[in-house]
Design a protein around this nucleic acid. Structure first.
Lengths: 207, 207
DNA sequence: TGAAGATTATTAAATAATTCACAATTACGG
DNA sequence: CCGTAATTGTGAATTATTTAATAATCTTCA
């Protein structure tokens, strides 16, 4: 590990999702060519990606779906069982907490933080304790490495704080700009940018 | 256009977002090196990306922020003013319709479709007409190229239909698997996969 | 049990993306 | 209005990623 390319790393969740779907459907084995059709990635790319974690395909046979899933889990962090936090329990934050498809994600959201914890805790749909943002240092779970950021403003200050507290990765839903401290990783989830990207691509291809 | 690399195309929304932010703050000119620090992309990459659309930087001076913005708009689709549709007005769909940061996106959501249009239309927060999904063919806006998919199931059928109706790009919020028809482009927005990606990356770097 | 057929793993080749290095150009101060 | 300092734009070099080609291995069935 550590020498797996960025491009490959970004494909792993796609594979995992597909494999779990297949497993659920009762599929026991899969060929790289079948998976290729399923996820729209060339079979040779898939085989290379898989081989980076070891050799567990069988020539003339393919891959064992469940074995593959458990290897992904072991190698890539699912077994680490991340204790995650969410910051900002507004409309979006609540939607994420209530997301009904958390099966098999790489951990769980343990608690949340907000500037109005009393109000948020009253909402029937919020199923984790919500603390005041000032209690971050005090209440952050031991070994927490991942934070989900859903606040409308003031991101920079919180990001700096999180960095101090040992958080390594941020899933960023804010559109506000902030400087990422050295050593942290950020993944943006941004509907607007995604739409723009798509529009740009559509227009660049068809015009 | 058309020869701009995929990697570059994915960075354009990042630049645009940063430039608009800067413009709002009253910044009139910017150096590639400044922008580099702002968006965490090497300055030389930025210059190359920009130069693909023409030469509008000035040596010894930098780039004019507003000029840059208007060129992005012209070259990359903002002026196309996409008429977009949204399918599936559940919790997530509603959240997207109400998203309060639509400034400068590459078009607008014109209408939505659902299996319970009466119910959805009653919600005070839904600000576009909602039609029954069976009326898709009838009500889809002229020249619509982009659809936002927020349905929990039955994606494949709808995607096929959209393809027939000339839609070229899909912003996909569903976790359901579907086969993408030839010629269509899809962008997944998937919280779970994003978190996994982040966890994988964090673990692959630090372990 | 062995041969045929299928499919992976991997080496090598091709392609794509990034970064370097510096020439060309422009702003700006005197 | 000239010279200096700054900064872009871009060929060339490097690095990363994907794809092709094929050797190695496994399954399966007679």
């Amino acid at each position: 590990m550590g020498n797996i390319s960025k491009a490959t790393l970004q494909r792993y969740p796609i594979y995992l999702k597909a494999l779990r779907k297949l497993s659920k459907e009762g599929v026991k084995r899969v060929l790289s060519s079948e998976l290729s059709e399923y996820v729209n990635i060339k079979s040779t790319t898939i085989r290379r990606d898989f081989s980076l974690m070891g050799q567990f395909g069988k020539q003339g046979y393919g891959y064992d779906v469940d074995e593959l899933i458990s290897i992904f889990a072991k190698e890539l962090g699912e077994d680490y069982d991340e204790k995650m936090i969410l910051i900002g329990v507004g409309r979006l934050g609540t939607a994420i907490l209530n997301y009904n498809n958390w099966d098999y994600v790489a951990g769980e959201i343990v608690c949340a933080f907000d500037i109005q914890p009393e109000k948020r805790n009253k909402e029937p749909k919020v199923n984790v304790p919500v603390y005041h943002i000032d209690q971050l240092e005090e209440k952050i779970p031991e070994g927490c490495e991942i934070a989900i950021l859903c606040i409308p403003s003031g991101a920079q200050e919180i990001v700096n704080k999180l960095h101090e507290l040992g958080v390594k990765g941020i899933v960023n839903f804010t559109r506000e700009h902030f400087v990422l401290p050295e050593g942290m990783i950020k993944k943006d989830v941004d509907v607007v940018s995604t739409i723009q990207e798509l529009v740009f691509e559509v227009n660049s291809i068809h015009k």
